[in-house]
C-alpha cells in the first residue's frame, strides 16, 4: 500500500510527539474536572430523591436533567464528541432521531385510544 502514502499523510501523528504530549497533558486536567463533576452530579441526583417535589413529573424532570448533564460530560469529553468528525455526528443523529420516533410514537399510540362511544354501545361479543 506504499502508493497510498501521499493520501494518508494527514492521518494521526506519531505517538510520543512532544507538542502532542502537551496537548494530552492539558486533556488530563479536563478529565479530572469531569470526574469530579460526575461524582458531584451523582450525589446531587441521590439528594434529589429525598427532596419532596410536589409532582412526580417534576421529580422525573430534575432527575433526567442531572442525568443528561452527566451523560453530556461523558459523551463530550471522555468520548471526544466535542471534536469528532461529521460522519460520527450524522450516524448518532440518525440513531437519536429514530430512537425518539420509537419512543414518542409508541407512547402516543398507547394514549391515543378510540373515544367514540359507538364502539362501546354497539359492540356485541
Amino acid at each position: 500500500m506504499s502508493d497510498h502514502s501521499s493520501i494518508d499523510s494527514s492521518g494521526h501523528e506519531a505517538p510520543g510527539n512532544d507538542s502532542h504530549a502537551q496537548d494530552i497533558a492539558g486533556h488530563i486536567n479536563t478529565y479530572m474536572w469531569i470526574f469530579g463533576s460526575l461524582l458531584v452530579g451523582t450525589v446531587l441526583t441521590v439528594l434529589m430523591y429525598y427532596v419532596d417535589f410536589s409532582s412526580m413529573a417534576m421529580t422525573v424532570a430534575v432527575a433526567l436533567f442531572i442525568a443528561s448533564i452527566k451523560a453530556f460530560l461523558v459523551a463530550a469529553y471522555f468520548m471526544h464528541l466535542m471534536s469528532e468528525k461529521k460522519l460520527v455526528y450524522s450516524v448518532l443523529l440518525l440513531a437519536a432521531f429514530f430512537f425518539t420516533g420509537l419512543m414518542g410514537l409508541t407512547l402516543w399510540g398507547s394514549f391515543d385510544l378510540p373515544t367514540n362511544s359507538i364502539h362501546k354501545t354497539s359492540y356485541v361479543p
Partner: peptide, 25 residues
C-alpha cells in the same frame, strides 16, 4: 489504523460508532 482522508476516521472507529448507534436503539 490510518485515518481515511475524506472521513478522517480509521475503520474500527467507524465500526464502533455504528455499533454504538445500534446499542442506542
Amino acid at each position: 489504523y490510518k485515518a481515511r482522508p475524506d472521513t478522517g476516521l480509521y475503520n474500527a472507529k467507524v465500526g464502533i460508532w455504528l455499533f454504538l448507534a445500534s446499542e442506542i436503539m
